[in-house]
C-alpha cells in the first residue's frame, strides 16, 4: 500500500510542474492589462507605468517566472490585487466553504442516486425505472445557475421557507471559531446550536441545487453497472443457490457494481467543483470558485495561479484516494498496482 501511494505521488510531481508553468504562461498570454485596470478610471499613461513597475510587470517574462517560483517554494502564492489579501490565506479561508458545499451536495446526491439506481436496475421497466430516467434527464439538462435561481425564487421569494441567499450564515450571526472551517462541524464543536441551524438553513438550497446536478450521472452509472452485474453468471448462481434477494443484490451484485460508480464519483466531484462557481455566484457563497472568477475577470494573476494550483493538488489527492478505494473494494485492483 505504501509503495502504491509513493508511486502515485511520484507521478503527480511532473503534472504539478506542468501546472505551474502553464498557469503562469496562460495568465500572461491572456489579453488584458492588469496595470491599466488597476490604475483606475482616471489614469494617465505615466500612472499606469508606475503601477506596472510596482507590480513587477515591466520585467521580462523569465524574470517574472523565476520570481514566482522562488516565492512559491517559500509557500508564498503572492497577493491578490482585487481583494488586497495574500492568496494563500484567501484560499485557505475559502476552500472550506466550497468543500462544505460540494461535499454536502455530493452526499445528498449519493444518498438519493444510489438507492434509486439500484431500484431502477432491479425493477427494470417499471415506474421506478421510468422515474429514474426522467429525473436523470432533467438533472443533466438543467444548468445549475438556473436550478439555483429557480429554487431561490420558489423557496425564498415566494414561499419564504428558505433564508435569504446571503452566503454561509445569516447576517446577524457570527461565524463559529474555526477548527475545520466547516461551519456545520465547527458550530457543533462550539456547542452553538443556533449557529448550526442557521448554517444548515443557508446550506440547504445550494446543496439541493448541486445534488440535482450530481444525481444524474451517479444514478445512471449505478443503474447500468447494476444491470450488467445482475445479468452475470455468479448472480444467477447465487439466486439458484437460494440466497435471499437482499443478500444477492446488496452483497454480491452491488459490491461488484461499485467500481464504475467510484470512478464516476471522482469525475462528478470535479464537475461539482466547476459547477460550484455558478452556485457560489447565485448564493453569494464566499467560496473559492467565485474568488477565481472575479480574479480572472480583473486580470488578477496571483489568485488565478493559486486557484489552479490548489485545484490541481486537490485532483491529485482525489485520484489517489480513488485508486486506494479501488484496492479496498476489489482485491484484483490491489495486485495490479
Amino acid at each position: 500500500m505504501l509503495k502504491l501511494i509513493a508511486s502515485r505521488i511520484a507521478t503527480a510531481i511532473p503534472s504539478l510542474i506542468g501546472v505551474v508553468i502553464v498557469t503562469f504562461m496562460l495568465t500572461r498570454v491572456l489579453p488584458g492589462d492588469a496595470a491599466a485596470y488597476f490604475a483606475g478610471p482616471a489614469a494617465t499613461p505615466q500612472a499606469i507605468a508606475e503601477i506596472r513597475t510596482k507590480l513587477g510587470l515591466d520585467k521580462p517574462l523569465p524574470v517574472q517566472f523565476v520570481d514566482y517560483v522562488t516565492a512559491l517554494s517559500k509557500g508564498d502564492l503572492g497577493s491578490s490585487l482585487s481583494t488586497g489579501q495574500p492568496v494563500a490565506t484567501e484560499i485557505a479561508s475559502r476552500l472550506p466553504a466550497s468543500a462544505e458545499l460540494t461535499l454536502s451536495g455530493l452526499i445528498l446526491a449519493l444518498a438519493i442516486a444510489i438507492p434509486f439506481g439500484i431500484m431502477a436496475a432491479v425493477k427494470q421497466g417499471t415506474w421506478v425505472d421510468h422515474a429514474c430516467r426522467v429525473i436523470t434527464t432533467a438533472g443533466v439538462s438543467l444548468p445549475v445557475f438556473f436550478t439555483g435561481l429557480l429554487l431561490v425564487y420558489v423557496f425564498y421569494f415566494k414561499l419564504g421557507w428558505a433564508p435569504a441567499p446571503l452566503g454561509r450564515l445569516d447576517v446577524f450571526f457570527t461565524a463559529p471559531p474555526t477548527v475545520t472551517g466547516f461551519y456545520l462541524i465547527d458550530s457543533l464543536i462550539a456547542g452553538d446550536f443556533e449557529t448550526f441551524r442557521s448554517a444548515a438553513a443557508q446550506l440547504a438550497i445550494p446543496t439541493v441545487t448541486l445534488a440535482i446536478f450530481a444525481l444524474a450521472p451517479i444514478a445512471r452509472i449505478t443503474r447500468a453497472s447494476m444491470l450488467s452485474v445482475l445479468s452475470s453468471e455468479f448472480v444467477r448462481t447465487a439466486r439458484a443457490a437460494g440466497l435471499t434477494p437482499y443478500k444477492v443484490i446488496m452483497v454480491y451484485a452491488f459490491r461488484n457494481a461499485m467500481l464504475p460508480v467510484i470512478t464516476t464519483l471522482g469525475m462528478v466531484f470535479s464537475f461539482l467543483l466547476g459547477a460550484n462557481v455558478l452556485v457560489e455566484k447565485v448564493f453569494a457563497w464566499p467560496g473559492i470558485g467565485s474568488y477565481a472568477v472575479e480574479a480572472l475577470i480583473s486580470s488578477d494573476y496571483a489568485p488565478v495561479q493559486g486557484f489552479v494550483l490548489a485545484m490541481a493538488i486537490l485532483y491529485i489527492i482525489l485520484n489517489l484516494v480513488i485508486d486506494l478505494a479501488y484496492g479496498v473494494i476489489d482485491p484484483r485492483a490491489r495486485s495490479e498496482a
Binding site: 425564498y156 435569504a164 447576517v171 453569494a284
Partner: peptide, 15 residues
Amino acid sequence: RMVPSAGNRRALLER
C-alpha cells in the same frame, strides 16, 4: 454584503 446575482438582490429588497 456582496450579492453577485442581480435577481437575488432584487428578491432581497422585495422580501
